[in-house]
Design a protein around this nucleic acid. Sequence first.
DNA 1: CTAACTATGAAACGACTGTTTCATATGCAC
DNA 2: GTGCATATGAAACAGTCGTTTCATAGTTAG
Lengths: 282, 282
Amino acid sequence: MATRLALRIQERFESLTASERKLATLLLDRPDEILTFSATELAGIVGVSKATAARFFRNLGYADFNDVRLQAREERNRTGPVQQVPMPAEAPEGAATVPTHLQVEMANLTRTFEQLRSDTLTDVAERLATAPRLWVVGLGPEAGIARHARITLARIRPAVHLVSENTGSWAEELASTGPTDALLVVALRPWPKLISAILDFARTTRLTTVVVTDPTNAARVRRHGATPLICHVSTPGPEASHTTVLSMLHLVANAVTARLGGLALRRRDLIADLREELDPQE
Amino acid sequence: MATRLALRIQERFESLTASERKLATLLLDRPDEILTFSATELAGIVGVSKATAARFFRNLGYADFNDVRLQAREERNRTGPVQQVPMPAEAPEGAATVPTHLQVEMANLTRTFEQLRSDTLTDVAERLATAPRLWVVGLGPEAGIARHARITLARIRPAVHLVSENTGSWAEELASTGPTDALLVVALRPWPKLISAILDFARTTRLTTVVVTDPTNAARVRRHGATPLICHVSTPGPEASHTTVLSMLHLVANAVTARLGGLALRRRDLIADLREELDPQE
DNA sequence: CTAACTATGAAACGACTGTTTCATATGCAC
DNA sequence: GTGCATATGAAACAGTCGTTTCATAGTTAG
């Protein structure tokens, strides 16, 4: 939390004049004040003139007071590394308290995305973006998520198909896939056997396959020749949390958008316009 | 964490003009911006004129923009420097970097669940747990989420129905609802008009209604006589993130489970056994 | 189609902010 | 004491910000 301004002040503190030290002390004590107060106000608080304040910031090496504020603002936006959040221990009761829930979700998120390599992401995005057709699969509890993924991706690229969850008919639906198509699977524990079959089929058809899954299935996915995107979904309770899965899919969609550039944006705008027409504003 | 400004905006959101809504949305998404940005800058970010911005704040009941800033400043002091995770500013490129994504999701999660009152949660859980039948609705982009909610809830209680998104047929589907049934709606911005109609119908049928929504629609939900569960979904990019929505639904499901106790657990185990039978282990 | 109304941005205006200039005060060397 | 250097505030100045006015585009009512 050491801002560049604070460091600069500390270096020169002894060589500052009395009035300047008043300002310096205030800023070291409450670093955020720069963002919210004007130079005049700062001067007023410690009882020096505006002129002194102006000189102070110039003497620190800034061109302007505006310069100071812009830097401070910018520094706050890229605040340092996210602190590691500990996963809460097993809750005795079905203690679904709000703070516990929040902490669990934060822990899952940090684990998930600190582990995700950004080149894996761009690689996946590249393949999902360029495939002629994209098939999305999610069985049982993941069916809703898969549907959501399909909706999201269909907004930024054409030919996104949902493989229905009617057991048995998936073969017919996937039959029309070609070797350069891509397959996006959402499958967590407990791992449905059917997914293994689908992955094997995808491998023989030479489909590019990405599987959003949990850590326990990562190795299995690799064994099937697919790329895993690992999401931590553990909870103190009995049910897994799909939160990180959705977050991962959102990130993937963003990456695909970035890869496709204007193409995706135009498609998205087109769809937005269409929606607006169909459902008159409001 | 609900500032007075945010509340004031939420109350009047629907009566705002298009340009004003752009400003309102920005301020709800990133409440701290008022402290650091000038009104001119705010106007510039969302692409409206300074004049509109000035009118906007006056229409909200403030004398001045300065008035706004003073109040915001004062409130922050009262809240103390609880510097939570800051929301990153607009990314220039489609810069969907992993760390940025993580930070955005963390910010949304903390905002969402620090604002959620635990008695609201238990109240909602009580009503969703005890209703004879539970109906789940989600239109357009939220259809997948709704389906997921239905799956999740159906594991812990009987008679959970998904109202299909076929426009027009919802009336027939909801026709069989009774006065003590409950309705769970997922609806974010842009608010579909159809949802308003459904909420009005629910009110006259005396359904208990819970709406998972974003801050811009909270007041509207209350006006329809329903209980809002507010999720922060803002992102630097163009697409909203449904992550917190899913997290909220997970929490609600947990709370319902806690309320139902052994009943829910037995049902869940039963279903797990069934699944295992249908899809032989592994 | 016209009239009234609303929403909006461009531009004029006044208020305020930050910088610079200048005169004064303070401290130190001699 | 005088001379010199530095620190400081008052005031002049230039620039920016927020407000208001006014003209225009878009919408609604009749």
